[in-house]
């Protein structure tokens, strides 16, 4: 009975701790005056027991933003790097979000 209660408490704590988010770094570039076309991309990678052999998921961010803003300039980019802890840092996710504004060529900044 005691063991069962302890296991239940541990499960409850881990459930409560699910998806705990902490911000690692933030950066913001110059924001244009025209902000009517926001663009956004988010890439993440789940890491188990700290075994991570590459960070190639980050390289897809720029391509994604370029696809959303063809023949334009993406500026005012807010880049947010987060760690989402699912289970006691045994399973966690590294998530990078980039949001910005698209200006098609020919538009004034």
């Amino acid at each position: 009975m005691r063991n069962f209660i302890l296991i239940l408490a541990a499960a409850a704590m881990s459930t409560l701790g699910m998806g705990c988010v902490s911000v690692e770094s933030i950066s913001l570039t110059s924001i244009p005056a025209r902000r009517d076309a926001p663009v956004r991309t988010e890439k993440s990678k789940i890491i188990f027991l700290g075994f991570n052999f590459n960070n190639d998921f980050v390289d897809e961010l720029v391509g994604d933003l370029k696809n959303q803003c063809k023949d334009g300039i993406v500026s005012g980019i807010l880049t947010k790097d987060e760690v989402v802890n699912y289970f006691l840092m045994i399973v966690y996710s590294r998530r990078v979000t980039a949001t910005g504004y698209c200006q098609r060529t020919g538009q004034k900044t």
């Binding site: 705990c20 988010v21 911000v23 933030i26 913001l28 924001i31 244009p32 902000r35 949001t99």
Partner: peptide, 23 residues
């Protein structure tokens, strides 16, 4: 216990609202 990081976007919105027409 934190489940989001919306305060970062809030800071950006706050900054933009203080400069509505400029760059």
């Amino acid at each position: 216990f934190t489940f989001d990081s919306d305060y970062v976007e809030k800071a950006r919105q706050d900054l933009i609202s203080n400069c509505p027409k400029g760059r």
